[in-house]
């Protein structure tokens, strides 16, 4: 069953003169990593909010078209159930710390407490995500005194601990250093391996190229292109949407331009390495 199925969706925030999403028809399959890219204010967060029901339940506005989440009409979902089914990590690390817990360990456990998880299981799950994210050094710290990056990790861990089937992640790495970013993406890959569905907004296109199965490119509230990550990344629409292409893809384009294309446009550095070494092989064979 599709995670989300949107048909001709247009959403205009209350008191806004322009729709934030317009003419959106999109199928998001389950069990995949679905990346969303686009410039600022292109509607990425609004799309995530829609899948999570925050729009139109919390942020009011005018919703047209049809939205189905896991086969059920969005408006028929009980909002509490929807929020339990779809975990959500947001981009602002400062508003995601509850402010009512005194250690990071307790902060991560908060969602599980609210779900009524038994204590033994709660402790185990918190331990597991702490290890996954490598934040052992933080567990005793007060979450209200952490840096933006540390908070972002704690916020991510807090949602992962709740073990929802679908996880919507809005720019999880905006404040993270490269190592922490890798850790977050490692977990995203793990989650996918566990059969979870992930919707991911991310500006770091190289990472999306590596981890996303499908990509949707937004521009000014409309879909520019959507499809398998490879097709989207190698398409011309990506450039038209002013979204940066992965460096290796850019390289391949340049080679294309001078008439020496790779057999298959690489989108990740591993693929590029393979393509380049094949070319070197070719060249040495020719001699």
């Amino acid at each position: 069953m599709a995670l989300a199925s949107l048909r001709d969706v247009r959403f205009t925030y209350a008191y806004s003169d322009r729709p934030a999403l317009d003419g959106i028809t999109l199928e998001i399959e389950s069990g995949m990593v679905h990346g969303i890219v686009g410039l600022n204010a292109s509607g990425k967060t609004t799309l995530c909010s829609l899948i999570r029901g925050i729009v139109p339940h919390f942020h009011k506005g005018e919703l047209e078209g049809s939205v189905e989440i896991l086969g059920r009409d969005l408006l028929e979902w009980d909002p509490a159930e929807l929020s339990r089914t779809i975990g959500c990590v947001f981009d602002n690390p400062f508003t995601q710390i509850s402010g009512i817990r005194e250690t990071v360990f307790e902060e991560i456990a908060l969602g599980l407490e609210n779900l009524g998880t038994p204590r033994a299981e709660m402790i185990e799950r918190v331990e597991r995500v702490v290890e996954q994210l490598g934040i052992e050094a933080l567990v005793r710290k007060n979450p209200n005194g952490l840096s933006g990056g540390q908070r972002q990790k704690v916020a991510f861990a807090s949602i992962i601990a709740m073990d929802a089937d679908v996880i919507v992640i809005d720019e999880p790495t905006s404040q993270l250093d490269p190592d922490a970013t890798d850790a977050v993406f490692g977990i995203i890959a793990d989650l996918k391996a566990q059969g979870k569905s992930i919707v991911l907004v991310e500006h770091k296109i190289d990472l999306l190229a590596e981890y996303a199965d499908r990509l949707t490119v937004l521009r000014a509230g409309r879909i520019v292109t959507t499809g398998a990550a490879r097709d989207v990344l190698t398409s011309d629409e990506l450039i038209a949407a002013e979204v940066p292409v992965p460096e290796v893809t850019e390289l391949s384009r340049r080679l294309d331009a001078i008439g020496r294309p790779f057999v298959r446009t690489p989108i990740t550095s591993a693929e590029a390495a393979a393509a380049v070494s094949a070319r070197i092989q070719e060249a040495s064979n020719a001699h």
Partner: peptide, 12 residues
């Protein structure tokens, strides 16, 4: 919104 994501409104 962030607390709602942490099941703050959960009836359980």
């Amino acid at each position: 919104i962030a607390l709602d994501a942490r099941a703050f409104n959960s009836p359980a």
